[in-house]
C-alpha cells in the first residue's frame, strides 16, 4: 500500500501544496485586474483631490469609473515641461500641477501627491494614496485635519519650501503643524515633500528669486 511507502509523506506534501496553491493562484488571477484598477484609482483620486475648485468638491460623490473618466479628461501625464508633475486642466486652462512624491515612512513607503497652483507658488492641496503609518497616529496624515492645512500655503524659496512646526506653535505662510505623537512620520513626510518640491522648482525654474515673475505680489518671506 502506498501509504506505507517511505516517500509517501513527500508525495502527499507535494500534492497538497500543488492543490492549494493552484486555488490561490486562480483566485489571485481572477482578482488581478481589480487590484490593479484599485491601485490606479487610488492615484487618480489623489491627483483630483489636490486640485482646487469643483473637481474636489464633487470627488467624494463620484463612483470609481466616474473618477477615472474625469482623470482621463482633465489630467495630462507627467512630462519634462511640467517638471514631472501631472498637469490638470479645466476647460483648457491649467488649474493645477499635481506633483507626485514618495519616500520611506515610519513603517513602509509613503506615496502622495501635492497640488500646486499655476503660479507655481501656492499649494492647492495634498493627498496620500499609499501609506502604512500607525493607525491613529502617523496615519492621521491622511485625515482632512492634517491635509487641509496645506491649502493656500506658499512654497518658500529656500531650503524648506514647507516647514512642519510643533502642534500649537504659531504658523507662518509656509508652515503647517506636524502630527501629534507621530514625530517620525511628520519629519519624514516633511523631508519627502520638500525633496520633491525642490526638484520640481529647479525643473520649472522657480528657484531663482530674481528670475521670478515681476507681476507676483505677496510672496513668501
Amino acid at each position: 500500500m502506498i501509504r506505507q511507502r517511505k516517500f509517501f509523506p513527500v508525495l502527499y506534501m507535494f500534492l497538497v501544496t500543488a492543490g492549494f496553491s493552484s486555488v490561490v493562484i486562480g483566485f489571485t488571477e481572477m482578482t488581478q485586474e481589480r487590484v490593479q484598477a484599485n491601485a490606479r484609482l487610488a492615484l487618480e483620486s489623489a491627483v483630483l483631490s489636490v486640485v482646487p475648485g469643483a473637481a474636489r468638491a464633487e470627488l467624494a460623490h463620484l463612483s470609481g469609473p466616474a473618477v477615472h473618466r474625469r482623470f482621463t479628461e482633465q489630467v495630462a501625464a507627467p512630462e519634462a515641461s511640467s517638471g514631472g508633475a501631472y498637469t490638470v486642466r479645466e476647460n483648457g486652462q491649467i488649474v493645477a500641477y499635481a506633483l507626485p512624491f514618495e519616500g520611506q515612512g515610519f513603517w513602509a513607503r509613503i506615496r502622495g501627491i501635492i497640488g500646486i497652483a499655476p503660479d507655481k507658488r501656492t499649494v492647492t492641496g495634498i493627498a496620500f494614496y499609499e501609506q502604512s503609518e500607525t493607525p491613529g497616529l502617523g496615519a492621521e496624515i491622511t485625515k482632512p485635519a492634517f491635509r487641509n492645512q496645506f491649502q493656500n500655503k506658499t512654497l518658500a524659496l529656500k531650503e524648506k519650501p514647507i516647514t512642519m512646526r510643533r502642534p500649537g506653535t504659531p504658523l507662518g505662510d509656509s508652515d503647517v503643524h506636524a502630527v501629534t505623537g507621530a514625530t517620525q512620520t511628520s519629519v519624514r513626510v516633511e523631508a519627502m515633500i520638500n525633496r520633491a518640491i525642490q526638484t520640481w522648482q529647479k525643473a520649472v525654474g522657480t528657484t531663482d528669486r530674481a528670475a521670478g515673475s515681476p507681476s507676483r505680489t505677496g510672496g513668501a518671506p
Binding site: F27, V35, Q131, S132
Partner: peptide
C-alpha cells in the same frame, strides 16, 4: 486577496 480587490482601504489600514 479579497481585501485587496474589494476593500483596498481596509487592507492598507
Amino acid at each position: 486577496v479579497l481585501l485587496g480587490a474589494y476593500w483596498p482601504s481596509m487592507r492598507a489600514n
